[in-house]
Design a binder for these strands. Structure first.
Lengths: 331, 331
DNA sequence: ATGAAAGCGCTAACAC
DNA sequence: GTGTTAGCGCTTTCAT
């Protein structure tokens, strides 16, 4: 390994001077600068980031902790975070909690132990304890996707209530009577979306039917099972609203098995647009969260906070929009 | 920040003793051990990984460098690598090169500068130069997805030739005459799959038709454009084989726009199974690469190499299998 | 069994 | 403008 010492002796200067040249600091004569540069070039010297980090008590790494990288929504988030981070000279450690608070804690711990510059987190439901700990550690934090009202934290979320209301109202307007809702059970997001769902029903003068609402793990399989269950009811739903695209896949499978026609016999709409939603027959109505923007905004805010830790916390709520396709509009 | 020094003075011992206790080394009396543990507990001490790494000249981080995290294949890989790494006490930095050799080089550089314990890489086509450099640096490396015959490197790949042959033969057996092929242009993978495609045609006594073969960027949009182009030919193909699931999405779009019926007017089959392939109408025939296994195997091999750098290099070729669905079988 | 001290590679006072 | 040196937090000889 080529160290700064090697460069120094090769260039006939001190390590301090080499350090100055590398960091592009002033107070170095052009002649010396060139000599050092030549030595750097010739030896193929690269500064050791670990040593820099130990010295500076801070790394150039951001931690991105998400609940399920399989979920297309988080794929977009991670892409955005990576892009934005690299634009600003940071790298990203991506961590997948599987909605498991223990894993989340473990990763938070790891980020701390690694002197990570900052963390972007989509917390599990029971994470509030951790916030206090992180805030106490003074490690910059931005929370995405899920709302944290009671802490002084940068928070970037979708307007879940608004979008869930929009999708439910859309069903109502298209004459659907028994609208079922499948919501994630592992985050506050599901709760907010449920509220939007209820609010839309109320505005439409409908009664909320408890037997049509399920809080479940946001996975394909659980969506499939819940839908199969719903469709077996004496009075089955005539529309299903799912809280993410994984659930939608499962519901689609169940509907196909039952040979029900969409949107005639049953309507379908979901949170999150995906590549296949517009390709299936019929194409699927969705509300599209601005995932990329969320990731980008969170990263930008986090980096600003890293540079100015005393910056006051901000809440950003991004709207998103409804994309009406075939699955929710009766012919 | 609580350091080892704080613990030492709190316990009334030296830092060396604390270090021994933390690392579970022998030659510490039970009494002292307990005293130290108590202090650790009481102060909430956590060893600083950065300092450990500087000292040990090695971190517990693996770098995973893939060409496109949007590609479901790499999503499975990354899940597998993460899982396996954490089982073995390692963390993972995920990096996305976008098939860009410059980005790849940048990340490789970063991994080196960070003292990363090892790297799992799906190289871009022009990466061979880099291999030599990495090997020279003695940083353990496992290459996945793409074959590297001419270097002494751990290499875990799918049997692309075999699978491409299988899918093409399947088309032939089902009476398709003009079988088009869309291959990625940014890796050796596309080349191998093209060879399998040719080989199957030959075995079936067919002529290869050059105008039906395209080497393109493996993305949805390019797949869409290429398919639209193919379908405009005076003699269009009656089947299309795509080299990954992103391309398949684009092709599906183009076929739908043309209002062609699958599998009657045109057959379709692709590399990589996805959640939607079995849901669309008709469901899509695929060859499923053992993505999770590839990631898992690569990680296990990498960790073995980290522990024993003199271990001889291995090539592992995993087969995968054909899943026949509706899109390639005429009624 | 325990401690003192050197040093991993780097930067930033401070001195000249 | 340049060099000397201390020290970031940790581990590991080498003494005792």
């Amino acid at each position: 390994m080529v160290t700064i010492k090697d460069v120094a002796s090769a260039a006939g200067v001190s390590t301090a001077t080499v350090s100055r040249v590398i960091a592009d600091k002033p107070h170095v004569s052009d002649a010396v600068r060139e000599k050092v540069m030549a030595a750097v070039e010739q030896l193929g010297y690269r500064p050791n980031l670990v040593a820099q980090n130990l010295r500076a008590q801070q790394s150039k790494i951001l931690g991105l902790i998400v609940s399920d990288i399989q979920n297309p929504f988080f794929r977009h988030i991670s892409r955005a975070v990576e892009d934005t981070a690299h634009e600003n000279g940071y790298s990203v450690i991506l961590c997948n909690t599987d909605e498991n608070p223990d894993k989340e804690k473990m990763y938070l711990q790891l980020m701390q132990d690694q002197n990570t510059a900052g963390i972007i987190l989509s917390p599990t439901k029971r994470a509030s304890r951790e916030f206090e700990r992180i805030l106490k550690l003074n490690i910059p934090l931005a929370v995405i996707d899920r709302r944290v009202a009671d802490f002084d934290i940068d928070n970037i979320v979708t307007d879940n209530l608004f979008l869930a209301e929009k999708i439910t109202s859309h069903f109502c307007e298209n004459g659907y009577q028994r609208i079922a809702g499948l919501f994630g059970d592992s985050s506050t997001t599901g709760i907010e979306r449920h509220q939007g769902y209820l609010s839309a029903l109320k505005k439409a003068g409908r009664n909320a039917l408890k037997e049509l609402v399920r809080f479940i793990a946001p996975r394909e399989l659980t969506g499939y099972e819940a839908a199969r269950d719903l469709l077996e009811l004496a009075q089955p739903p005539d529309a299903i609203f799912t809280s993410n695209s994984l659930l939608a896949v499962g519901v689609l499978l169940a509907i196909k098995e039952k040979n029900l026609s969409i949107p005639g016999q049953i309507g379908l709409a979901t949170f999150d647009d995906t590549s296949w939603a517009k390709l299936v027959t019929p194409s699927i109505t969705v509300v599209d969260q601005p995932a990329y923007e969320i990731g980008q905004t969170a990263t930008e805010m986090l980096i600003k906070r890293i540079k100015d830790p005393s910056r006051s916390a901000r809440k950003v709520i991004l709207k998103g929009h409804l994309i009406v396709r075939q699955s929710s509009v009766r012919p």
